[in-house]
Design a protein around this nucleic acid. Sequence first.
RNA 1: GCCGAAGUGGUGGAAUGGUAGACACGUCGGUCUCAAAAACCGAUGGCUUCUGGCCGUGCCGGUUCGAGUCCGGCCUUCGGUACCA
Length: 850
Amino acid sequence: MEERYNAGPIEAKWQQSWAENRTFKVSEQGGKPKYYLLEMFPYPSGRIHMGHVRNYSIGDVVARFKRLQGYNVLHPMGWDAFGMPAENAAIQHRVHPAKWTHENIANMRSQLKKMGFSYDWDREFATCDVDYYKWEQLIFLRMYERGLAYKKSSTVNWCPACQTVLANEQVEDDCCWRCDSLVEAKELEQWFFKITDYAQELLDQTWNLPGWPEPVLTMQRNWLGRSTGCEIEFPLETADGHIRVFTTRQDTVFGATFMSLAPEHPLALELTTPERRGEVEEFIARVRREDKSRRGSEEMEKEGVFTGAYCRNPVTGGRMPVFLANFVLMEYGTGAVMAVPTHDQRDFEFARRYDLPLQVVIQPPGEPLDPARMTEAWTGPGQMVNSGEFDGLGNEEAKERIADYLQQRGLGKKSVNFRLRDWGVSRQRYWGTPIPVIYCERCGIVPVPEQDLPVVLPVDVEFTGEGGSPLAKSEAFLQTSCPTCGGSARRETDTFDTFVESSWYFARYACPDYTQGPIDRSRVEYWLPVDQYIGGVEHAVMHLLYARFFTKVLRDLGLVNLDEPFTNLLTQGMVCMETRSCPAHGWLFPEEVHDGKCRKCGAEATLGRIEKMSKSKKNVVDPDHLISRYGADTARLFSLFAAPPEKDLEWNEQGVEGCFRFLNRVWRAIYDNLALIGLAAPPETEGAARQLRRLTHRTIRKVTDDIDGRFHFNTAIAAVMELVNEIYSFEAKQSSPGAMREALEAVVRLLAPFVPHLAEELWCCLGHLDGLEAAGWPAWDPAALVEEEKTIVIQINGKMRGKVVVAADADDQTIERAALEEPNVARFLAGQTVRKVVIVPGRLVNVVVG
RNA sequence: GCCGAAGUGGUGGAAUGGUAGACACGUCGGUCUCAAAAACCGAUGGCUUCUGGCCGUGCCGGUUCGAGUCCGGCCUUCGGUACCA
C-alpha cells in the first residue's frame, strides 16, 4: 500500500476494471429483485457542468447502494440530443448540428466516464439516432389514428426581419434576439397532442403517487387546474345564436351586466357593428402585438373595446353590452367571460374604466354593499340578493341550486373545465424529429405509411437563421409523392418539440436494441416502472407531466402495461451561480472575466443576478479542473456534502479542499493501522473498545437511514467524518485491534457509494480480494448500540439551565429528583413555586415555575 | 401576476415540536521545521459584571410547558409559467 493517497492512478485502475468486466451491465436474469434507477438525461451542450455532476453523483450513490443491498440495478445513460442550441451553433459557427452534437456527446461521455458513474453503457443512445426517433414517428402515427394527434391553428413568435419563428427564449423585451426587430404574433397550422383527454386521469393519479414530493404534485394539480362550474348561454340581441361562457361563479349570474370576449374569439369581428369596426380591429391588432409576456398578468392595465353588439342575461333578461377585453384568454374556458363587476376584481376595474353598470348579488355580513361607493369587488361569501327565488340563500348553496336551475331550463349545464391546454408539438426547426406526414393537394393530410418510416432528417441543408426552417428549403426533402394517390406531394417540414423524445426514453432504455418496435414488452415489463427518478426541480411540471401523459398513451396503444412511469421522484435543487456580462460581448463565462473585467475588451463586467447555471447565461463551471486536481472521488464527495439534494446550491469552491483532506485522512487512518489490525481477532466488547463499537454501529445505522430514507447524503458523510475523527483520537487502539479493524472497515464500506474508486482500493488494501459488492452493505448490531447512561437536559420555563447524567433505565421520579437537585437548577428554583414538571423520557425535563 | 420553494454564525450547512449552530470551510493560536508547505492539536454566533447571565434562526403576530420547526400576515431571493432543456 502506498503511503499517500493518489487519486489519479487509483481511479484509472478501477474505471478500467469496471469497463473491461462490464461490471454494471445488467440483464433480466439473475434472480435478484430489480431496481430501475434513472437520472434525467443531459442535453449535450458540450461539457458537463456542476448540475450534472450533482445530479449524477446523487444517482450513483443510490445505484451503488441498491446494488450493495442485493438489487439487480438498471442504471442507464443517454442523450437528449435534439434541440435549439445545436442549430444556433450551426448558424453562428457553421458547424452542422449533427457534427456539433456528436462531438459534444463524445466529450461529455468521456467526462462522465472519468467521474466513475456506474452506468450500463451498452444501453446508451441519443435521441437524434434514427433508430430512436423512427419509433417516435411510429408512435405519432398510432396517435394520429386514434385522434390523439391533430392539427389546429395557433400563434407563434414571428420575426418579420429574419422571416423566422422564434422560441420564447429568443424574444427579449418583445424583440428578436438576433436583429432586435419587434416580434409579431403569427397564426400557423400546427400539430397538437390531445393531452386534455387525459387531464382527469393525470389529476386523479397525483393522489396515487406517494413516492413523489408533495410540492411537485401540487404544482401539477395547479397546472391541470380543474374547476367545476357551469357553461351558460347568453342569447345575442340582434342575431340568432348565443355566446357561451364558462364560469365557476354561476351564483353571481344575476349580477352579470356585460360580456367580455377574448380578442381572438371567433364572434369578435362577426358581432362588431360597422361603425365600431375600425376601433375594434385596431384593438385586436394591438393586443395581439403585446400579447406574449404580459397578458394575464394582474398589473397589466385592463383594457377593452365595445363591439356595438348586445346580448341578454338569460336569467334577468337584462341587456349586456359585448366588449372585447385584453385579459380574457381564448385558451381558457370558452374565451368568453360573463362580467360581474361587483364580485370579480378584473370585471370591477373594467366596469369603472368604461362606466358600466354594477349590480350587487351577494351581500357580505354587515354594512350593505353600495355599488356607487364600492372600491373593489366583493369576492368572499355572503347571502344572495337581487337574485329572484334565490334571495336569502348562502352563495355556496346557491351555486348548486342555480346550476340545477340553469340546467332544467336549458340555459346552461354543469361543466368541468381544465386550465391545461393541448400540447403543441410542432416546431419550425431543423434539428428535431421530422413529423411523418405528407400533404397532397388531392388527398389532404396523409400520414407516412408505416413501412416508409423512418422519415430521415436530410443532412445537406443550409443554416442562416433566416427565412424559416432549413427543412422547408430542402427541395430533396420537401418533394415527394402521395402514398395514397401517387400524385406529387410535399412533406411536413415541422419537427417535434424535444419534450416528445424525453417523454418515453425511460422505456427505451429497457430495450435500446429492439428492432421490431419502440418497445419490447417483456423487457419493459420487467424493468418498468422506474423505481427512482432523479432530476432538477425545473422539470417539476412540464417534462414530468408530458412523460406521465405519454406513458398513458403508450398503455392505451397497447405498448406497455403501466399507468405511471416513475414510482419515486427526487427533485434536486439547482446549482446556481452569479452571471456576468460585458456591454460589448454579452454574457461571459467565468474564465472570460479577470479582475472583474472582460478579457476580450477590458470593459468592466457587470455582476448579474445569481441564477441557475445554464449554457445560455454562461454562468457555468467546468468540473474538469476539479477532477484533474483532486480526482473524481473528491468532486463527487463535495457535490454531495455541500447541501442536501433538494436544496439549491450556490456554487463556490470553498470546501472542496476539505473533502480532499478528509479522503487523505481516511487513507492514512488505514495506512497507519494496517500492521495493528492485520491479524485482528473479532472486535473486543468491553471497556474503551465498547465505546468505539457503539459509534461504529451507530454510524452504520445513521448512514443507512440517511441514504435509504431521506437522501440526505451530507449528513451521512458528516457521520462518517465523525467516526474517522473518533478513530484518530481513540487512545486504546493497541488493546482493541479488533474494534479498530471493524471501525476502519465500516468507514470504507459506508463510503463505497460516495467515493467508489477509493473505497475499492482501500478494501483491497485491507486484504479483501473479492470486491466490495461481494461484501454487501453492512448491518448494524443492535447489541452494540445499547447505552448504560443518558444525558438529560434540564429546562426551567423552556430555557436550558443544566444537564444531568442518569442511568438509561431510570424512572421518571429518579430523573425528576436528579434534575431538581442539579446545583444550577436548584439556584434558579430557590424561592420559586414549581407549577408543573414535564418529562420527556430519555431527553429532557422542563420545570415550569412562576 | 399566477403556481411552487427557500431565508439559521464570516461561509456551506446540522437540528422526529425538546441542549440552535453537528460536520466542514475560513480565521486565529499552538506543535513539528533552519524556514515554508503538509500534517497534527486547540479556539471560534454576538454581548457580558464569565463555574454564570442576556440576546440570537428574514420581519410582525399567534398556538404550546417548550417554536428554526406548527398557524396567520408580510418582505426578499430562486424555479416554473405551455417554443430553453
